[in-house]
Nucleic acid binder design. Sequence first.
DNA 1: AGTCCTTTGAAGTGC
DNA 2: GCACTTCAAAGGACT
Length: 402
Amino acid sequence: MPQLSSGGGDDLGANDEMIAFKDEGEQEEKIQENAFTERDLADLKSSLVNESEINQSPHAVRRGQQGEQRGFPEKHREHLDGASKHQDGGMYKTQAYPGYPFLMLPDPYLPNSSVSPNSNKVSVVQQSHGMLTSLLPYSNEHFSPSPPHLPTDMSQKTGVHRHHSQDLSGYYSLPPGGVGQISPSMGWFPHSLMLGPSGMHPTGIPHPAIVPHTGKQEHDQYDRGMYMKPHHVEAKREKEPKKPVIKKPLNAFMLYMKEMRAKVIAECTLKESAAINQILGRRWHALTREEQAKYYELARKERQLHMQLYPTWSARDNYVSGKKKRRKREKLQDSNTDPGSPKKCRARFGLNQQTDWCGPCRCVPSNHPHPHPHPHTPSPPPTPQHRCRPTTRPPLSSHSTI
DNA sequence: AGTCCTTTGAAGTGC
DNA sequence: GCACTTCAAAGGACT
């Protein structure tokens, strides 16, 4: 748990994390990040425009970023990884949150616990596809070092099973008239026993973490149908009686994205998620430790709740078969070694026909330490400092510019 | 219709 | 134990 406030001066890697930021000039950026929005937009737009004008390649921006990210110090990532690995360790659960005493108390979502309906603070995001999302009130009240209401309230209600739209309405309060505004990521996990065969809650609100089992596209469709009139949902279900999938609980950054996406969209008038995510990634790094702690805490609760509700669930359940993926990769590799023209090769990887190497790594010659003259001749193995990964993201630079 | 892109973090896999 | 991979969200772009 890297960014959490140590409170009493313990170090969980959080200090290291911050030091790492400072070492890498992040501090300066943090100051500058305050004047984000306009610059984000300007940078992003100009980069998009420039790239499109120069290269007319849909991957031009990606290449540029990869070029930057290529310089990302592994050390930093290790910090993150190492720190995150502490998260579920004892430190996290006990000492890591000296300022969060409620963590030592019974989980609010345990069958014998509950939370109190005493807050009306809520952020409601109108998703572009029409789904309303109720977000946790990320007020300081909720995430103050000693949330005053939580432990007390939790202890007041006992023996009541968690009914999300009521019990959680305190902690995850609903806005006026916001009946269906339940976020998949904010802890709205009704008990599995309360769900119907396709993840429907008795209230008629489908469980957001449960979606049909047929891939991303249907996830979207299902999401869009979440608040359809019941008979529509019913008809849809009859048509597609597919095995529901329990989705992963959202991590801190995902929760942050969910909350801030609409804001960024509004500020930047951007719609492309990839671009928005870049901005959000930068903003995430610009957050203070305390601000991030809100989301880490929230994510922890999410995981905890998820674990309670679906004790047998494993992230592996949603993995596409490793073999299947490997086959896909191998197939791609085969096609890369398949004789063909450099032109076709560049086209396949969205490279500029004039300026780009046609190798699978998409790096432009100018920033590539070991050029791929042509994929048909085997590329030299990636160096530890620079790994070319065409299908997965390269090491991320925490201070990469858009 | 399906996949990619882009971000971070959690968790799984494989050595 | 480490490095690597997959998946969570989102929606436009691309195949």
